[in-house]
């Protein structure tokens, strides 16, 4: 899509007239390219290389190549790693559908002809621009025993207890906090998507006697399919990377507290790769597995979307 519009421009005089374009272009691109080569490309390659080594930060000169050892250490007989993957999968499977449904519902409500839309929209976005640490700090208090959110959830049968101290509900706490922060962001994308659907479609449907649900099912949902795909895939990749909220509830102690009930792929990586610097090889291997999981999911989602069409 992008290259087509470019070709048109290349034909114009502005482009043709030049002789020093190559110099100018690379001069303007130089800061980006230099930073990218040093601070992205080089470490990216290094990450793969380190993942095949026994790499101790304090004795870097003694690193040695160990083949796939780090990968087998992670994947074979490593309940801690699988538990972390399990938690990550739960977060993704619960948070992504919730945030997508809420985002769509709020976007549809704000797409109506009502006054005061702007204020509602701002209120819904503000959690998204608040830091995860700050939001977690407030939620940790609101989810203490006898506090308002705890009491509200107690009506649904959850215990009236400090959520972040209870291993069985701490992960759910992280998910609720995370969804609260994300909904506004995806709502904006859905709103933009909704605005591209022509109103005439709905009018025609109404003339034909379609009710609200039929309109939703046969106009809104199909028209928003590309947007939904984007929201689900970006949302999945983002949810996989959740970190700040978990770091915040792990008071002083080990990431993933209480009792390792909120460990994820990223906290596993951070604990082993950054906190215990003698296991950097293992840390790199864990993020590479993470990268392949994320890429795999993106491909599968893309396939599913194409098949349905």
């Amino acid at each position: 899509m992008v290259s087509v519009s470019n070709k048109k421009m290349i034909g114009s005089k502005w482009i043709k007239n030049s002789d020093s374009d190559i110099f100018t272009a690379y001069l303007l691109l130089a800061p980006f390219l230099i930073l990218w080569l040093i601070w992205f490309f080089y470490p990216f390659i290094q990450s793969f290389l380190i993942s095949f080594q026994h790499f101790d930060f304090s004795q870097m000169d003694q690193s040695k190549f160990v083949g796939l050892e780090n990968y087998t250490k992670l994947l074979v007989n490593n309940p801690e790693f699988y538990e972390a993957i399990g938690h990550t999968v739960i977060i993704v499977l619960v948070a992504v559908p919730l945030q997508t449904v809420f985002a769509l519902a709020l976007a549809m409500a704000l797409n109506q002809d009502i006054s005061g839309k702007g204020i509602f929209r701002t209120v819904y976005i503000i959690p998204n621009i608040t830091s995860g640490i700050a939001a977690a700090t407030v939620f940790m208090v609101l989810f203490r025993k006898d506090m308002i959110f705890t009491k509200a959830f107690a009506l649904l049968g959850f215990p009236n207890d400090t959520w972040t101290a209870k291993p069985d509900i701490a992960l759910l706490f992280v998910i609720i906090l995370y969804v609260w922060q994300q909904v506004g962001f995806y709502m904006i994308i859905y709103l933009a998507g909704l605005q591209t659907i022509s109103r005439e479609l709905y009018e025609a449907a109404r003339v034909d006697g379609a009710n609200w649900f039929q309109q939703f099912k046969s106009i809104t949902v199909p028209s928003l399919k590309p947007v939904t795909f984007l929201i689900v895939s970006v949302g999945t990749i983002q949810a996989f990377q959740i970190f700040d909220q978990i770091a915040a509830i792990s008071r002083y102690g080990k990431l993933g507290s209480p009792a390792d009930s909120t460990t994820t792929l990223i906290t596993y990586f951070f604990t082993h790769g950054i906190r215990y610097p003698d296991e950097m090889g293992l840390g790199c291997a864990s993020v590479i597995i993470f990268l392949f999981i994320v890429l795999g999911i993106t491909l599968v989602q893309k396939k599913l979307l194409e098949e349905k069409e």
């Binding site: 950054i274 993020v287 990268l291």
Partner: peptide, 16 residues
């Protein structure tokens, strides 16, 4: 580059 999570390069960057 937009699609690659930053954690991917965090350890080598830390070493650098």
């Amino acid at each position: 580059t937009m699609m690659i999570p930053y954690h991917m390069i965090l350890i080598p960057v830390y070493i650098m």
